[in-house]
């Protein structure tokens, strides 16, 4: 595929990447070792490694942040909103890129532009809509529906971009063989879209997993259906923050994101070899 792997230039690249990697992974490492400090130790020396390992930060964080209870909620919200988003987005993206919709290009640009308005500008009208539609009374619904609406534009844009790289001949030949659009989608498109869909899954999951403002608003008089991000609020004290416990909670919470990321990597590795299929 590409030039020899062991040459000098590759080693230079490796060194550079390792230096940059240190900068990139530093926040995660910082969060990790801070999670073993108690607040006093933290303020004494921000950067130092913990002297004693305060494992109780994790158990305390689990209780204070209600990690166990909220994790289930977050998972449910994520699974439902992501599945629906991906399905709707794949259909729409395919239509926009390959089904000769008039003005498709314009629609795509508009999808980008409508996302500019900051979320905070949207919360009042959004809340009104959700309230009038009665979504606030159904557990999870007030979060899932808007999330889907917010994630769709970005996902559609990314997916349609990759749809365009699929040669028209492949699709045409399927059509000539008499396949309906749905079959074409299933048999030809979907296998080729694993990497982009995986990418979108990761982006969208990170969004849903960490979203706070809207989650807070829609669960005001509920004590159930609360996601993990709200649990993180419990660590902000009146005048200070329990950094040890907060970072412990964060370390626990980010695990699914990282796991999902690693899990989807295999589609990238598959992509590395499958590139030959198209040639």
């Amino acid at each position: 595929m590409n030039t020899k792997k062991g040459s000098a230039s590759v080693w230079i690249i490796r060194v550079f990447l390792i230096v940059m990697a240190v900068f990139s992974i530093f926040p995660l490492i910082f969060a990790f070792y801070t999670s073993f400090k108690n607040n006093q130790e933290f303020y004494q020396s921000i950067w130092a490694l913990p002297e004693t390992l305060h494992f109780e930060n994790y158990s305390n964080a689990f209780v204070v942040g209600k990690v166990g209870e909220y994790a289930l909620n977050s998972i449910f919200i994520a699974v439902v909103s992501l599945s629906v988003t991906i399905v709707f987005a794949v259909l729409a993206a395919y239509a926009l890129s390959r089904l000769k919709i008039p003005g498709a290009e314009l629609i795509l640009v508009l999808l980008i532009l409508i996302q500019v308005l900051p979320t905070e500008s949207l919360i009042i009208p959004e809340y009104m809509i959700v309230s009038r539609l009665g979504l606030l009374n159904v557990k999870y619904a007030a979060m899932i529906f808007p999330y889907i609406g917010w994630m769709l534009p970005g996902t559609i844009i990314i997916l349609s971009n990759f749809f365009k790289t699929i040669p028209v001949e492949l699709i045409e030949s399927a059509r000539i063989d008499g396949a309906t659009e749905m079959t074409t989608m299933r048999k030809i498109i979907v296998p080729l879209m694993k990497a982009p869909v995986a990418t979108c899954l990761v982006f969208d999951f990170c969004f849903v997993w960490g979203e706070l403002m809207w989650a807070q608003l829609t669960t005001l008089s509920r004590t159930d259906g609360l996601p993990l991000s709200i649990g993180l609020l419990n660590f902000k004290g009146m005048y200070s923050t329990e950094w040890g416990q907060l970072t412990a909670a964060i370390c626990m919470i980010i695990i699914p994101m990282y796991v999902l990321f690693i899990f989807t990597q295999k589609y990238f590795i598959a992509g590395l070899t499958a590139g030959g299929v198209k040639g």
Binding site: I123, Y127, S131, R132, L220, K236
Partner: peptide
């Protein structure tokens, strides 16, 4: 509910503005 130092205004004003049953 936890008192959100930064988002209190937004929370109260949004629920107020929507005129719904949440308060």
């Amino acid at each position: 509910k936890q008192w959100p130092a930064e988002d209190l205004t937004k929370t109260i004003k949004t629920t107020f503005a929507s005129g719904g049953n949440e308060s």
